[in-house]
Simulated assay, not measured.
Amino acid sequence: MTGKLYEYEHIKFLSQNPNPHTVLVDVREPEEFQEINVPTSINVAYRSYPDGLKMDAETFFNIFKTKKPSCEKELILLCARGRRASEALKVALEAGYTNVSLYPGSLKDWTYRERGGSTAPLAMSTAGSKPYNFQDVKKLVQHPEQDKVLVDVREPKEVESYKMPTSINLPFQTAPSALSLSDDEFEEQFQFPKPKSNQELIFFCAKGMRAKAAEELARSYGFKNTGIYEGSINDWLAHGGDKIKSE
């Protein structure tokens, strides 16, 4: 199981009540970690050691001064704003971890909430991505463009209740590494062609959080032309999007 997105309340609970089956993994650099960190988390610096989670247990211990988590444990990845955690998720999956999740808000959200904020500002870095609103997406639904792909990252059961016309479904929670598959593997799994790296992928979900995480991960797989419909399906339906058809 992969792709869970945790919020502050769950991370706070784990920091106060450690779970032997779950490990909080902070992938920032040591100097960032020393300045502030989530209690009980371990530090596996992604920039300095991008393949850290692939190391054997002895090498891992010698470098990070902590025992390497077993592949049976759930890893919850966090960093400063979410980007490095999303990139490290790919490495964790390649290393054999099958239960890997994210704290999208990461330390930006943690410090904000610890200081008394009730709602964190934009959780994940969306540098390089283009913001889309209802009118932008409406135009794409009514008049599809070959170089733009609407990507719904909700789960199939959610899509059953409403599917946006012309969109494709790449469920982030159950298939976070979909865009890392080869063209043949992708088509075999999803029954439609894999988007091209030169196409613009516009991500949306129910409320926007999964879309941001999926966009971050897509960029780490080489899809640099990306967009996010932050309002996502909730905003789409609130504006009557379910009445809009593709022409």
Rank of each mutant, 00 (worst) to 15 (best):
L140C: 02
P193L: 00
A80M: 15
E32K: 10
R28P: 04
A95K: 05
A206N: 07
T40W: 02
E31R: 10
M209H: 11
L53H: 03
S70M: 05
P50L: 09
F134C: 10
E31F: 09
L217G: 00
M209F: 06
Q199V: 11
L75R: 06
N17G: 03
S220H: 14
C79G: 09
T226L: 05
F172P: 04
F33D: 01
G128E: 05
T126A: 12
V27Q: 01
N225R: 12
F64T: 05
N133W: 01
G3I: 05
S177R: 13
P195S: 05
A85K: 09
Q142M: 13
K73P: 02
Y221G: 08
K4L: 15
C205E: 07
R47P: 02
K207L: 14
K157Q: 13
E31M: 08
P104D: 00
E200G: 01
E215Q: 13
R154L: 02
P30Q: 07
T59I: 00
Y162A: 06
Q199F: 12
C71T: 14
V27R: 03
R84W: 11
Y46S: 08
F203N: 05
I244Q: 00
L75T: 11
S246A: 08
L53Y: 08
G222Y: 07
F33N: 00
D56C: 01
E160M: 11
D147S: 15
I202K: 09
N133Y: 07
N17P: 00
V91C: 09
A211F: 01
P50F: 10
V149N: 02
S70R: 03
Y46N: 02
M209L: 15
E29M: 13
P39M: 08
R115W: 10
R219M: 13
K130Y: 11
G227L: 02
R81S: 14
N133K: 04
K224G: 12
E74A: 13
D147M: 06
Q191H: 14
N37A: 10
S129L: 08
D152Q: 01
R219Q: 15
E200D: 06
S15T: 05
V149I: 14
F203C: 07
V38K: 00
K224I: 14
E216A: 15
I244K: 04
A213N: 09
Y229K: 09
V44R: 03
N133Q: 08
E145V: 06
L75P: 10
D26W: 01
